[in-house]
Structure formats: structure tokens, C-alpha cells
Design a protein around this nucleic acid. Sequence first.
DNA 1: GATTATAAATCGGTATACGGATGGACCGTA
DNA 2: TACGGTCCATCCGTATACCGATTTATAATC
Lengths: 228, 228
Amino acid sequence: MVPEESAAGRVTRSLRQRLLTGELKPGAPLSQSRIAAEYGVSRMPARDALQVLAAEGLVDLDAFTAVVRGLSITELQELYELREAVEPVLTRIAVPNVGRAEVAQMTTLIEGMESNPPAVDWLAANATFHALVYSRADRARMIELTEQLRRLTDRYVYLHVGVFGDTDHIHEEHRQILHAVRNGDAAGAAELTRLHIATSHEFILRYLLEHEHMPLGHGKGNRATQSR
Amino acid sequence: MVPEESAAGRVTRSLRQRLLTGELKPGAPLSQSRIAAEYGVSRMPARDALQVLAAEGLVDLDAFTAVVRGLSITELQELYELREAVEPVLTRIAVPNVGRAEVAQMTTLIEGMESNPPAVDWLAANATFHALVYSRADRARMIELTEQLRRLTDRYVYLHVGVFGDTDHIHEEHRQILHAVRNGDAAGAAELTRLHIATSHEFILRYLLEHEHMPLGHGKGNRATQSR
DNA sequence: GATTATAAATCGGTATACGGATGGACCGTA
DNA sequence: TACGGTCCATCCGTATACCGATTTATAATC
């Protein structure tokens, strides 16, 4: 039974990618007709895609015509606050269930990250590293929320920063987390995870405040799951 | 400029209500055509509504035909864990901005709740009480998430409990929270909020485990924001 | 030239129509 | 009666068409 991805699914994934990489810039209008023409489909799959992406917070449907949604600094902060609240919980729940297989994979990922410069696939490896822990928590909803939040913050990172803080420090934090996880220290791993997120939060916030391009737009219109 | 609600919006709100009150029971199929006929509209608004409700976690689109989504006990626990993680953060951020007006409204709400028996509008008053604090936090995304989580848990509450625990205790907790808020004790209010949620979490969980109807269904298919 | 009136283009919401897929009922056969 | 196959009803995804609303371009007037 092959998935047989629908046209709407294709458009959704492609648009999401283009939004996350910044090819589609905040404020740009997203007309159903234009998207439909671009992908050689009718307006309906385009419409579906926009609705899904709006629910994910990447698109704003409040305007007359849908627009690429930007992140204000307040919203970025909000996303990190949510991550700091949720991911430690996930860690604490997951740690008792993490086995040797995950630890081995995490070790491999760490080594890969330490020998490669930070880039797009570095971000992916980083995401996988943490997701490996979370996957053992049996908390589907939290995991989904976490992935969504991570996507949104990562977007901000490699759109406007592209620079990473003290990578040695990041690697050190990863090693500490892995150590706590291996020892079954749930509370310790949770707190280390919180600190890990807080660190990059502070770094990015400081970076953005210094380089005050005020780069992304006007964080208005937050009713993402609205039905117009 | 009157909102001029769209047909899709009408259907969405009505279906949401029917889902939350339990008129539509978990596992029941939701055919686009049937909904369309029922509301006297075409399939398109019905389709839109189902997609929005799926993003909210009330409907499961993974099945061949959409079905009303139930909550397993694990999922209910997950929702409460999320609330315990997020709402204290919201409280801590909001408390410094809460003014006299909100305190007055909260006092009125408390008095109303204390003199009325717990019922549907009691739940609404309770929600408003907490929302009054949160509204001063300038965290639109968190607020939206919180409201969504509360809707999902409330649904469970008045579907299968309909009974409230020690209401005197709840009122006491409310008074303590209000007291902390009035005094600008952000950390205290946050911790009281966490306890407040944890208390009803425990109560409901215990109630459900005792009356093991295993009432709602099979918590499978969590990919809510999927595009099929 | 500036402003207002007007016409054309664009857009989103919705209705209807078509095709492919799925599930089940019905029927014939062993 | 049990089994297998065919037919049909139903469902969804998608395409196309229509409509009102909004924006933009254009023309007319002061």
C-alpha cells in the first residue's frame, strides 16, 4: 500500500520547505491561483496547503490574500519559552525508556556534528539527536508540538543568523545531556535540556538585538487556526 | 465592518460545539457529504471545517473517512502535562501587567462561581477567570495553545465526569491565586496555577481509573496536521 | 496636476461535476 | 451453508465554473 501522496500533500511540503529556507520572504503574498498555476494543479490543493501551513503558523490567512508570516522578536521569544517549558518534560518522561540503541545513535550523531561545521544538515543532526530521546516518551502530541516549535525557531536561526554561538559549548552540552540520559538521570537530563535551549535562546536574542535589522515583519494576526 | 461569517466558519463553530458537548461521539464517522447536506451547504465548507477541527485535534483525518477523535487516558494525561508546563509560564509573565480592572472582574467571577453549582457556564466562568490573567502576558501563541488544551480537557471533563471534586477546594485555590496575583507575586501565582491544574488532573485521572468504562476510544493516529 | 469616478483585473468562497478507490451487499457456485 | 466474485453505493481528491468583494488601473472632472 504505497502512500500515493496527494497533490495537496506535495504542494504543502514544497511550500513549507520554501518558507523555512526563506525563499518565500515574510510579507510576500500567496495567491491561491498563482500557487496553483506554479504547481500545475487547480486552486483546491493550493487552498488546502495554505490552510495546513496557516495552522502551523507559517502563513497568515487574516489578510485579504494570504501572506508569508514573519516572526517578531516577541514571538521568537515566545517560541523559545514554550520549548523551555515543554522539552524538559518530554525529556524527563522519556529518559527511563531510552535504551542502548538510542544512546549509540546519539553518540554517532554527536561525533558527526563535532567533526562537521554547522550547516543545514548540522541542524538536522541536532534535531535528530534530541528527537531520539523524545521518541521514547509515548507523548505523540508533545512531540508534534515540539517539532513544530523547533521548525519555527530553526527557520529563524538559519534565515537571519546563519551563525552559531560557541559550538564547542553546544557540543559540551550535548555530551552532558547524553551522559545524563545514559545514566538514567531523568531530572538531570531535563534540566540540562532546559539550559541547552535557554542558551541558544539567549544567544540568538542577543544577536538579533545587536544587529537590529528588525528583519522580519510585524508579528500581527496570530489567529492561526481561524476559519475566516 | 461586520465579520460576515463565512459558511465554513459557521459549520466549524457548530461542529466544534457538537464535538465538545459529546453530541458527536468518538469513533463516529464524519462524512463531508453528510455534513454538507445537514448544514445546507456544499462539500467545500464542510471539508474546510473538518480540516480546521483536525488541526485542533478534535477530528482524525487519517482514517479513510474522517472520524471523531477520542482521548485515551494517556492522551488526557499528556494534555494535562502540557497545561502544567505552559500555564505557569503564562502566569509568571502576565502577573506584573495585571491591573485593578482584571482583579475586579476576577473577584466577580469567583463570587459567581461560589454561589452557583458547577455546570457548563461554571466551566466557562472558570476559563474566563484564568484567561483574564493570561490575557496580560502578550503571548498570543501561548494563549492560543492554552485555550486549545483547555477546550480538549474540558471536553473530557464534562463528557465523562460531570462531577466536580471538592469544589470548596477549587474555590480556595482560586482565592489563593487571586491573592497572589493582586500582590504581584508572579512566582507564587505561577506555582499555585500549576498546583491548581495538577489537582484537577489527579482528580479526573483517579475518577476515570475507578469508573473504568474505558469510555473514549483508541488514541491512535496523532498526526493531526497531516495533509493525507 | 490633483482628485474623484469608473472600469478592468484579481482574489477568495462556494457550488457543481468527474474520476478513482474503497467497502459492502448481493448472487451464484461448490 | 460457506465461499468467492461481481456490482453498486459511498466517499474523497480534484478540476472547473460562478459570484461577490476588493484592489488597481484608467479616465474624467475640477
